[in-house]
Structure formats: C-alpha cells, structure tokens
Simulated scan of single mutants.
Amino acid sequence: MTLDDIDRALLRAVAADADQSTTQLGQKLGLSQPATWRRLRRLQDAGVIAGRRLMLDAQKVGFGVTVFLGIKLATKGRVSLEDFERAVSGIAEVQSVEHVLGLYDYRLRVVARDLADFERVLRRRIMTLPGVGNVEANVLLSEERLAGPL
C-alpha cells in the first residue's frame, strides 16, 4: 500500500490521540467526515493501523516495579523457541517479549507490585520456564520517554 501525505498526517494525528472522532480528524486535515472515515478504514483493512491500545499508568494501578530481563536459553536444541515464547506469553506480569540478537536470546518487560512480588514472579514463574538458562535483571528507575508515533 502506498501512503500519501494525507494518510501520513492522518496516522500522526491518530497516533497522537486515538480518541479523536473522524469529524475532529477531518477538520484538522481539511477532509469531510466520510472521507476521513474511508481513509481510516482503508488503513485498518490494509493492516497499517494494527489496533488501538489503552495506556494505563502502572504505578496508579498498583504495579510499582518494572524490570527488564535478559534471558539466555540454556539449550536451544532441546527446547524450541516457540515453546519458550508460548510459555512466557502466559505470564500476566510479562508485558512484552522480544526475541533479540546479542548476549541474550530474549528481552522481557516485567511489572510487579514491589520487589518481593517481582522475586516471586521470577522464582516461581520465569525461572521455571522451559529452557531458561542465564537471566539478567535491570530495574527501571525512571522512564523519560514513552513509545510514541513512528
């Protein structure tokens, strides 16, 4: 799919605030509401817009600790990457799973209520996953920039 300047402006506007109505978006872009709706629908149907997410403040909903884990699988031959990915995806505290190239095989973003809760998740849930070898933890102290529009 080829994106024109209006498509790109529409994507920037939606990425900045996904709660805007098609009327509001159209006014910003100089389009009618139906034309804006059709463009949004076309972008969704093409998979350019993959979905919309609600962003919660982890602190305010009781998750005071965020930890990034680097995980090196012990034996890649015995346990498939898919087995590990399927198992780790079932842990609610694991917010993201990234297969990476480098010192570790995976990078996880894990939230917990506090350090004691994180230790429980680490010992009982993560360290028992198939194939887990070395694990390195980095506690998030502050987040200066949240993920934003591409």
Rank of each mutant, 00 (worst) to 15 (best):
D19Q: 15
D19H: 14
D19P: 01
Q20A: 10
S21Y: 09
L25G: 05
G26V: 07
L29G: 07
G30D: 05
L31F: 04
P34S: 08
A35D: 08
A35K: 08
T36S: 04
R38N: 12
R38I: 04
R38G: 02
R39H: 08
R39S: 00
L40I: 13
R41L: 11
R42W: 07
L43M: 08
L43A: 00
L43F: 05
D45W: 01
D45E: 15
A46W: 10
G47A: 02
G47Q: 08
G47L: 06
V48T: 11
V48K: 05
I49H: 03
A50R: 10
A50M: 05
A50W: 03
A50Y: 08
L54S: 14
L54P: 07
L54G: 09
M55N: 00
L56E: 08
Q59D: 14
Q59E: 14
Q59N: 13
G62V: 08
F63K: 09
G64S: 15
G64L: 15
V65G: 07
V65W: 01
V65R: 09
V65Y: 01
V67D: 04
F68H: 13
G70Q: 08
G70P: 00
I71F: 02
K72A: 15
K72I: 01
L73N: 06
A74T: 11
T75S: 15
K76L: 13
G77R: 15
G77H: 14
R78M: 14
S80N: 09
D83I: 00
A87T: 07
A87L: 00
A87S: 12
S89D: 13
S89G: 15
S89A: 13
G90Y: 09
I91R: 05
I91L: 07
E93F: 04
E93P: 05
Q95S: 11
Q95N: 09
V97N: 00
H99Y: 10
V100R: 04
G102F: 09
G102A: 10
L103D: 14
Y106S: 03
R107C: 12
R109D: 10
R109W: 03
V111L: 09
A112T: 05
A112V: 03
R113F: 04
L115P: 11
